[in-house]
Design a protein around this nucleic acid. Sequence first.
RNA 1: UCCUCAGUAGCUCAGUUGGUUAGAGCGUCGGACUGUUAAUCCGUAGGUCGAAGGUUCGAGUCCUUCCUGGGGAGCCA
Length: 462
Amino acid sequence: MIKREKVKELLLSEPGQEVLAKGWVRTKRGNKNVMFIALNDGSTISNIQIVVDVPVFDEDMLKEITTGASIRVTGKLVKSQGQGQSVEIVARELEVYGTCDPEKYPLQKKGHSMEFLREIAHLRPRTNTFGAVLRIRHAMAFAIHKYFNDRGFYYLHTPIVTGSDAEGAGEMFRVTTLDLDNVPKKADGSIDYSEDFFGKETNLTVSGQLEGELGALSLGEIYTFGPTFRAENSNTPRHLAEFWMIEPEMAFYDINDNMDLAEDLTKFLIRYALDNCSEDLEFLNRMIDKGLIERLHFITDNDFVRTTYTEAVKILEKAGRKWEFPVSWGNDLKAEHERYLVEEHFKRPVMLTDYPMGIKAFYMKQNDDGKTVRGLDVLFPRIGEIIGGSQREEIYEKLEGRIKELGIPEEDLWWYLETRKFGSVPHSGFGLGFERLILFVTGMSNIRDVIPFPRTPGSAEF
RNA sequence: UCCUCAGUAGCUCAGUUGGUUAGAGCGUCGGACUGUUAAUCCGUAGGUCGAAGGUUCGAGUCCUUCCUGGGGAGCCA
């Protein structure tokens, strides 16, 4: 019995041996005498060609070999007579595992629109584009763990269900086992969460940061990498209701250490893709985004710009153009401003720091000027904000003061505040949007096409 | 959520100032071709024109509402 080999391995094997391959038929063509099957098993973007001497095989069985059908083939691996592939399999035995009605199977040899493929998310991984994207997504996930593991960071599992609604990053999804048709009420008419599963109000997490900080303040350097949820009614090619985020938190890092890590990590990940996903990237570069590989090299080969919010505002004021949203110190930068800085002024990734306190979260380290905080946004071409982070406020009084000013329920954060009482240290961290990274690395234009099963407002099929 | 564009065959689209039986390419199916590469060539089938109202002698085409999708904006990763 011959061992089954994956297409990826077969394509690199020496011709001459008997082989066994299994996979899905991409295309079939030929005539009465000879038939060619392009077989793919997901292991690589390339197909292996099966050559079939038609008269030798059962006609009805061959008719079942249609686009999308799954088959097993044994035969001799030989040097290809044709162009386009170095080796091919001359079939000796063929078996159809699962037929695939060509009248009903939605995938064709020709290209489909991304919008159509989104409607058949259960089948789209069988296309070249989605195969490439999902293999790269896997490689990036692996590279993230490798990067942090190699540098002594610990992978910390922060909770998905959170009892705190003070994570400060947008609308949350309620988690409850209460009977929604008969919700228990308190005397004053409000919902009685004491009868709920956790005995309190709970939600899906919008960020693992606060728990991540607890990890950093004990293990030193940690990272989280998991799903996060935002119940925002955001309908854009850059937002998902369920997305994955990488959140490192590091004790004894100031804002500059934080920036060093952010730049080094993103460059490492992009370099990893270039080194390990070249076939898939070449396909995407050819079919999806002609400037992709050049752009990736540009990122790894150049320093990111580091400047402050205040400097950025000055640049924008001097840009000599009309903004839809006026630029003035104290207002947050809008997409048009960020795009100008990254794509026109600096023409490379930009790291902005020291934002006005009023537009950033409560936990950011307050600067001595009393006006700004040590927030950090990393802006990428095409994507916009790919990373958001900060040095964290480690001084108890300042942190508590900010919480009070903003009216955040302090009792929900007692455990977070205690870290500032018991051996508090300067520390920093950031959140990297995984899908936004994948968007950049693959050249895809819609975030719904870089996650296998996207969740967006009004859409949770599959 | 706001602005904007779109929805016609399985897919991608065309369809004139409102006018008879609604078109193409690809795909499917049938046929031709001894080695194809998104094969090629000949032929076939395939449509409640997103939904509901309305205007009109007559609506794919005009109007209203709704649904779905794209792009832009806001919110953010």
